[in-house]
């Protein structure tokens, strides 16, 4: 799918090079993510990654996040590391040193289980990327164990690309799990003039946005269900309606892949896809303008009352210290 062979153990150097070689291939933004799990009797090695790319004013921005961890024979996390190629998507406060320390504090010594609160709470790690990777990895391993697929190398990779078309956005998702590959498309149309953002970067109004999902069978695209029209008059309504609209596409993807529950390692799982889509919408609506694009990310990562969900969107050091009191200046 991406020319990356995951059937053999990969090294971090291989992965770093692979992520450096990625290109947008005509899309306005994309995410390449994946997992490799090498089970063993006394040690299980896990590598989880995602790399976000966006075309901002003809400059390709690339933001890799790679986590490696090992589990002992009783599934306790023996070691965990956020790799050095993490650049932070939001400037110097989005610090690899801090987020690596958070991961170690939260996860080291814990049982690698989706029942553990540290995997479920999306805010504890102070970073959306590390949360998604940890939650995805634990659910992938549990899925493979339920299905007796945990004796050999477990691997998964997925590319989600958003293309700017005349009618709106065409998002194509290719996912490959242990050698089985499937494709899904999500069309978001009728955008121009129909989405309004507030000063905080949140979508506050959407009118007549057409959403259609397609699944591929033997090279032909078929609608997953009838297109829906999204109308919303607040950010809350917008997010809820969008989640509901895209969930059937995610479920269809899981069914075709043979994953019938807890398919949280998918990039088109509503909360994850919402992030990718918000970036794509920001790029399309604001003509790839970097400042506006960042503003949309800022809006997405803050609560209604302005509290930052991730450390990167903090306004300044005072904001950091108020919301992330364990941050230290030496983390920068």
């Amino acid at each position: 799918m991406t020319g990356f062979d995951l059937t053999k153990e990969i090294t971090y150097e291989d992965l770093r090079e692979r992520l450096e070689d990625l290109s947008l291939q005509g899309s306005c933004c994309m995410r390449y993510g994946g997992y490799q799990i090498i089970p063993g009797q006394n040690e299980t090695k896990i590598t989880a990654w995602q790399c976000n790319m966006a075309d901002v004013q003809n400059f390709d921005v690339r933001l890799p996040t790679v986590i490696s961890l090992t589990l002992d024979g009783e599934d306790r996390i023996r070691s965990i590391e956020l790799k050095e190629n993490f650049k932070g998507s939001q400037g110097m406060i989005c610090s690899r040193t801090y987020l690596d320390r958070k991961l170690k504090e939260l996860y080291q010594g814990r049982v690698f289980s989706s029942q553990e609160k540290v995997f479920q709470d999306q805010y504890l790690s102070c970073c959306r990327h590390t949360y998604e990777l940890m939650y995805g990895a634990v659910n992938l391993l549990e899925h493979c164990r339920r299905n007796g697929q945990d004796r050999e190398i477990i691997w998964m990779q997925e590319i989600t690309r958003a293309f700017h078309r005349d009618h709106g956005l065409d998002c194509e998702d290719r996912i490959e799990l242990n050698g089985k590959m499937i494709r899904t498309r999500i069309l978001i149309e009728n955008l121009q003039g129909n989405i309004q953002y507030n000063a905080g970067g949140k979508v506050v109004s959407a009118r007549n946005i057409r959403i259609q999902g397609l699944e591929e069978k033997e090279g032909v695209w078929y609608p997953i269900r009838d297109a829906v029209e999204l109308n919303a008059e607040s950010y809350l309504q917008y997010t809820r309606k969008l989640m509901k609209a895209v969930s059937p596409f995610w479920l269809s993807s899981g069914r075709r892949l043979g994953v019938r529950m807890k398919f949280y390692f998918s990039q088109i799982w509503g909360p994850t896809f919402f992030g990718i889509l918000s970036q794509a919408l920001g790029l399309v609506i604001f003509n790839n303008n970097y400042a506006y694009f960042q503003h949309c990310i800022y809006g997405m990562q803050r609560s209604e009352d302005g509290k930052p969900f991730c450390i990167g969107v903090s306004d300044d050091l005072d904001d950091v210290m108020a919301n992330f009191p364990d941050f230290q200046l030496s983390d920068i």
Binding site: S114, Q115, Q120, Q122, Y135, Q237, R240, K241, M243, K244, S247, P248, W250, L251, Y264, G270, P271
Partner: peptide, 24 residues
């Protein structure tokens, strides 16, 4: 152990199974 947002995936299944419409 179910993510709060995951209920959205259940909504679709319930709507189909019971032919109902669930308001977001």
């Amino acid at each position: 152990g179910i993510d709060s947002l995951s209920i959205y995936s259940m909504v679709d299944e319930l709507e189909k199974k019971y032919s109902i419409s669930i308001d977001t």
